[in-house]
Computed example of a mutant assay.
Amino acid sequence: MLSVRPKVAELAFQIFGRTLHPELYRIHQTRRIERTAYDAKIDITNCGHVITWRAGGVTLCEVASSASQPLPRRRQLLKKPLKGVHDESIECHGGVRYRTRFQLEPVGPDLFWTFQQQLGQGPTEGLLHTFDPSGRMALGALSYIHVDCRCRSMMVQAIHTFPDDYAIVKVESTFSLPEA
């Protein structure tokens, strides 16, 4: 298990059709969601986040982490380096649909620190975790996750900052069931 945040060049975005054992990553914040049609668990981890969503016999697990994080290969539906901008979608059994857009955005130091300061002082709903400084930078990284729940869908917006690399990771994912 990694104990510090990886460099942005080492990041990967993965989707699994199964749950992952929580011993595989270090959890800093957690939120559980229970709706009539689905349930979910959202974790901020040392590398990024893990979202586990279950509905109608389908399990999807989204992981933003280090590519070297020891994760299983069994039932891995997608693995992409977290570089540039990606749009992905997966159709599952029973009409369950998953869509995501993720990107790594390198920015200049001034813009990065302005964004980091606004993010750290702004959101009051959702999950927010401030990491300890790495030693090289005076301020630690931030992870923020906002969840918007509906009866048959859940949208998650995640932002992770990487001060050592002046980079921001943005992820927006939607998990949805077919109309009833």
Rank of each mutant, 00 (worst) to 15 (best):
V85H: 12
R31P: 01
H21V: 10
P133F: 14
R99I: 02
H146L: 12
M155C: 14
V8A: 06
Y98P: 01
W113C: 08
V4E: 07
G94K: 10
C149M: 01
P81H: 15
K83Y: 06
Q157R: 15
V169E: 11
Q118Y: 01
L60P: 03
G17L: 00
R97G: 06
F112Y: 12
T19W: 10
D87W: 14
G140E: 09
I33G: 01
L127G: 02
F175Y: 15
A138D: 14
G95F: 07
L142H: 03
R18H: 06
L2S: 08
L111Y: 15
E179F: 04
L24K: 03
G108R: 11
A55D: 14
P123L: 12
G17C: 12
S66D: 11
I90C: 02
L20R: 09
P163F: 00
V4F: 15
I159K: 08
P133Y: 05
R73I: 01
L71G: 04
G94H: 07
Y98R: 06
G108W: 08
I44N: 03
A64F: 15
G95Y: 05
E105W: 04
K170R: 14
G57K: 12
S3K: 08
S143H: 00
T36H: 08
T45M: 10
G17N: 04
Q14S: 14
A158M: 10
P106I: 06
R136Y: 11
S176V: 09
G84P: 01
W53N: 00
F16Q: 07
P109N: 14
P6M: 00
H49A: 07
R99H: 03
T52W: 05
D39I: 05
R54T: 12
R99C: 11
L139N: 06
P133S: 06
V8K: 07
A167G: 12
T100C: 14
E172P: 04
T114I: 11
S173C: 04
L104S: 10
L24C: 03
L20C: 06
T45I: 02
G57E: 04
Y144Q: 08
R18A: 04
E125C: 08
P6N: 02
A12P: 00
G135M: 04
P81F: 12
R54Q: 09
Q76K: 08
M154S: 00
K7A: 15
F131I: 06
D148S: 08
A167C: 06
A138I: 07
E62C: 05
S89V: 00
S153M: 02
R136W: 13
P106K: 13
Y38C: 12
L60F: 03
L139G: 04
L78E: 11
G120N: 02
P163W: 00
I27C: 14
T130G: 13
K80R: 13
Y144S: 03
T114D: 04
V107P: 06
T30S: 10
K80I: 11
P70I: 02
P109A: 15
R101Q: 13
V50W: 05
L82Y: 08
V58M: 01
G140D: 05
A12H: 13
H146Q: 15
L111S: 12
L104D: 03
R97V: 02
A40M: 07
L71Q: 07
H93C: 15
